[in-house]
Each structure stands twice: as C-alpha cells, then as structure tokens.
Design a protein around this nucleic acid. Structure first.
Length: 552
RNA sequence: GACCCCAUCGUCUAGUCAGGUCCAGGACGUCAGGUUUUCAUCCUGAAAACAGGGGUUCGAAUCCCCUUGGGGUCGCCA
C-alpha cells in the first residue's frame, strides 16, 4: 500500500508549533515510506475563512523545509491529481455523498435553529446532564418533512448514529479506543449554508485523496468515532490513525496565540501603564485592556513589547523565525517533542529524521515546550557552522527582518560584525540585540550607572577612567587600526602600565565605546566601530566622569 | 458534569508491548569548581524521577485494579 499522509489546516494565519509538529510527522512518515505528503485547506467555515487570514502557513512550512507533494500550488510545491485541495471548491463532490446518505437513510434533515439547540444545551447543563440531540426532527412525519423542505425552511443534515454497538478506533499510538453505544449524538454533517462540516469533509476528502495514514493532534481523538462511522456508511476504507499528544507551555497551559496578549496585559497592569504607545490608538487600547479575548495585531503586540522591554513568547513558527532560530533546529526540536530515535541521538538533521521516523516510537503523553532546550540546540547549530555559513545565514536573516543592519555596514564590516558576534550568539537575532551600540550614533551612547559599568570605570586605584585617560593619547596616535595592530598596541601598553593585566584596560574601553559591559572581543569591537567613532565615544565617556563616579 | 486519553529527574525523554542485565540512562535546565580581556561559550563534577495504594509473580518502572493528578472532547469551528 502506498503511504499517503496529509496536513489539513484551516486558513487562519500563521502556523502554530503544534500544527508544525503534526505536519512534520506526516511529512517524515510519508518520506520514510516512500509515500506522498499532501496539503489540504479546510476552509469550510464561511464566517471565518477570509482572504486576508491568508495562507501564511504555506511560507512557514516552506521555511521549515516541509514540502508537500500535492496540494495548493505555491512556489513550485503542490499541484496533483486529487484536487481541488481547497474544500470550499469541492462542494459538488460533497453533495454527491450527501445524497448517498440521504437515500440510504443514514442522514436526515433537522430543522432546529441554533438558538433552540443552544437553549436545550443550557437546560441540560443546568440539570447536570450530558446533552445529546434528541432526534426530534427524525420523528417528524414524512409529510411534514416534505412540507418543510418545500417551504425552504433552513435545515442541517444530521447523520443517524447507530446506537446499538460499541465503536472502536484502532490508533497506532494509543491502541484501541472504545466508545460505548449511545455516547454519540446524531451529529451535523451539512450546515444550513450547504457547506459540509469538518467531520464530513475530512472523511470524504481523505477517502478520495486516498489518504492512508491520518496523523493529527489528540484533540481530534474524540471525533474519530464519527469519522469511522461515516466511512462505513459511505463505503470507504478506514485510514490508519495516529493521534499525537498536545504541546503545552512550561506552566502546563495550552500553548496559545493568546499567550502574547496575556503577558502584555499582565505587564501593563503590573506597571500601571495607562496610555497606549504610538501605533496603537486609544479605542483599540481600551477594548484590548478590557476584553481578554481581544488580540492585538502582530505589529501592535511587537510595538508594545518593545515599549515594555519584554520578550513576547514565541508561539507561531513565524515567531521563531523572527527570533532568529534556524529552521532545521526548530524541526529537530519539534521532532523530539513526543518522538525519539531508537539510538537516542538528540541532534540530527532532516535526512536522519526521515531515515528513522516511525509511529511506534511516538509517546502518548503530552509535552511541554522547553525554550531553553531549543535555545541550546540553536546555539550548538550556530557554533558548528563555518564562519562563511554563519555570515550568509545572518545576512539572509537581516535581509528579511533587519535590513537596517545591512544598510548600516559596508560588506566588509558586516562580515566582521557577524563573525565577531558568532561565538556568543544563541540566535541570529543576538548580534543585533546585544550589538545595538554598533548601530547607534556616537553622540547617543549613554552610560548607565549600573554595577558592572561603575566597576569598570570607577573602582580601583587607578580606576578605569584613569587608565582610559592615560591610554587615549596612544590610541589617538595609532596608525594601524586593525585587530593585530590594536592588539600589539594595547597589550604592550597594558604590559607597561597595568602589570600586563589586559582586563584592566580592555574593560574600561569596552564600556566607553559600547555604553555597557558586554561586547565582542575588544579589538574586533574597535575595528568594527572604526578609529574615529571609538575615540569619540571614549572622549564622550570621559566627559561623563563626574556623573558616573561622583567623588564623595 | 459526561465520555475519552495520559502519568519515569524541574523539563524533554530511554527503558514499558516480549517482567530480572535499572539502588533507572541521556539531553536541557540547576548547583559547585575550572578556562576566558566582558558577556556568551567551553571543560570537570554534583544534586535530581519510576504519583499513591492494592494485587499477580521467586522477582514489577515494566502486567492488572483502584485512587489522585493532568489533558482533550462534548459547536450548523476545524
């Protein structure tokens, strides 16, 4: 049997890490078995599917290196003979199967309104009972039904669930899952607007697209008996099922896009901030603060986060991309969430994943997303790169996310900047985050009187300021402003004036030119900055001596 | 609330299906040392788990039951 798997997201913006992992497992499984991986867009909700919600996840999948053999056409991927791959374009197909079920008596029209059902559910809840549809419309006389239909009454189609037998789902990771007779209600398969519900569309499409293995999140487990029933009624074979557990935040809550807003809201309240930052208007701000279900746009959230100096939690694949993670590392880490290779290897590439992946090594229990471990993997991957590779990766990252960095440097200096930062970068964003002083104007550098700054500049006898003042003339006269030139210059100066203790000289210089205690190796830093800027910054720092080191 | 799923270090997991080689292994994190012109690395070492209770068995992390805890579903959302 040919293996065919599919990932079937609804078109709601970006790809979530949970979805990415499902897609990855489907992809790896198909590849492992020489099968095909398809992508299908589940856009049967007319209320939600909008053009601007978009197909952003196609780019996310592509970035991760998860390519699809069949599906929407995008950048050379997709196409295929089992299309269309958008469910909204398959309505006539579904209609054909609806008719089959109506004719066989397996489906029937139901005329209750949404409000009536909501009321019934409320009542059942008040009585502390589980609500199941009472089949009221099933007991309508044929004449009444006929009359209602002729009147054009709005109605849905419900599937008549056989209630005389136990339902079993054979799951490749969970084993057999059983459901007692009568637990399932007659669920809706066609909405009043004529669109199929998820349950119906998924069954028809999986069958028609000859999907052999359905690998998806465990939130679908409870739905699967419905699908099995539908397959039987329609005469379709059952695909093999594999339900993988969910991914959670470290605190055990479900990883959700709302987490970003949750964090921001908490920060805003904690600090008692009342007015919105630029980019967010007053009205948006007020409703957002007052309503927990309202989300800021990605841009607005970023503005606010940078205003508050907090890091937003990464939730979507795009967040990790922007935060400077490597796609191969994310894929590696995601694969490890719920799966592990038999030899225990933890860091691997996609070829290895494909060669090793199988469903029988998937774990049943849910996993918490550990950003520290991801970060450690990203660091390892970055450090393992050659300088050239790193420079190119970093350049690519800047092109997309930080063109201002590229614009600031000459090619030669960009390379120097990248290489100098490589060894302490955990992400591609780190050089930019910790190297802001490189990009800043000489006149805008400030020195905060924090402990490490004061230590470098004010403490000791002679103190850093004394040494800075002493070495400045030497630096002014330096002709060979290169790493080698500065190295011999500063080291011999340290030899002569600081008992050979390089730190006593380097750290004051570092603080002076960067404004803080952290920078790449000092010679690299000075060369990237250039002589003029370095000298100017040291002079300015010197002029702030009184403010930083008040003489008591 | 009903139904379903799950349960090994703080976290991800190996080991569970085929009970003994497991006083439980690895990784991330943590802690303690060391290297380093800062930070980050890097090196060495340490602490750290079979949720609880009953069985079955010569023997249980592994099999069974109960309890507890966590999660999912219960939509004309997917």
């Amino acid at each position: 049997m040919t293996v065919r798997t599919r990932f079937a997201p609804s078109p709601t913006g970006h790809l979530h890490v949970g979805g990415a992992r499902s897609a990855l497992f489907c992809w790896a499984f198909a590849k492992r078995h020489g099968g095909r991986f398809l992508l299908r867009i589940e856009d049967t909700d007319q209320k939600r599917s909008s053009a601007e919600a978009g197909l952003g996840f196609l780019a996310d999948l592509e970035w991760l290196g998860i390519d699809w053999d069949e599906g929407p056409e995008h950048d050379g991927h997709g196409g295929g003979d089992s299309g269309p791959y958008f469910q909204s374009k398959r309505l006539p197909i579904y209609e054909e199967y609806f008719q089959k079920l109506i004719e066989s008596g397996a489906a029937y029209p139901a005329f209750e309104t949404t409000e009536e059902l909501a009321e019934a559910r409320r009542e059942a809840r008040a009585r502390k009972e589980a609500y199941r549809y009472d089949r009221a419309s099933l007991s309508l006389s044929p004449e009444t039904v006929k009359q209602y239909l002729e009147e054009g009454r709005p109605h849905v189609l419900r599937f008549k669930v056989p209630d005389d037998r136990e339902l079993v789902v054979h799951d490749l990771v969970l084993g057999d899952v059983r459901l007692a007779p009568g637990e399932l209600e007659d669920f809706v398969i066609r909405k009043a607007d004529g669109f199929p519900t998820y349950h119906f569309a998924v069954v028809v499409d999986d069958a028609l697209m000859e999907v052999s293995h359905v690998i998806r999140g465990q939130e679908h487990l409870a739905n699967t008996p419905k699908h099995v029933l539908l397959q039987e009624a329609l005469g379709f074979p059952h695909p093999a099922y594999a339900h993988v557990s969910l991914i959670f935040n470290p605190d055990g809550s479900k990883m959700s896009k709302r987490d970003k807003d949750k964090l921001l809201r908490a920060q805003v309240k904690e600090r008692g901030i009342e007015s919105p930052p630029g980019g967010i208007d007053e009205a948006t701000w007020t409703t957002w603060l007052g309503d927990k279900t309202v989300q800021l746009s990605a841009d607005q959230a970023m503005v606010l986060a940078s205003e508050l100096h907090v890091d937003l939690p990464e939730i979507d694949v795009a967040d990790f991309q922007q935060a400077g993670y490597l796609p191969d590392v994310l894929v590696n880490y995601l694969a490890l969430l719920g799966w592990s290779p038999s030899d225990g290897q933890e860091q691997f590439d996609q070829d290895f994943l494909v060669s090793q992946f199988d469903l029988d090594r998937i774990v049943k229990s849910p996993a918490k997303f550990d950003r520290d471990k991801l970060l450690a993997f990203n660091l390892d991957a970055l450090q393992d790169m050659s300088e050239d590779d790193f420079v190119e990766r970093f350049r690519g990252f800047c092109e997309v996310h930080h063109p201002e960095v590229l614009a600031h440097f000459t090619d030669e200096n960009f390379r120097r900047f990248a290489v100098a930062n490589k060894e302490r970068s955990k992400t591609l964003l780190d050089p930019i985050r910790t190297g802001g002083f490189f990009l800043a104007d000489d006149e805008s550098i400030t020195w905060e009187a924090i402990k490490p700054v004061r230590k470098a500049l004010c403490n000791g006898e002679p103190c850093g300021y004394d040494r800075l003042e002493a070495i400045l003339p030497t630096l002014r006269e330096a002709e060979d402003w290169t790493v080698a030139g500065l190295e011999s210059l500063i080291e011999s100066w340290a030899e002569a004036h600081a008992e050979g203790n390089l730190g006593k000289v380097a750290q004051p210089i570092r603080v002076a030119v960067s404004g803080g205690p952290v920078s790449p190796p000092i010679y690299d830093t000075l060369v990237i900055l250039g002589k003029d800027a370095s000298i100017r910054r040291m002079e300015r720092c010197l002029s702030h001596r009184e403010a930083l080191c008040p003489t008591a």
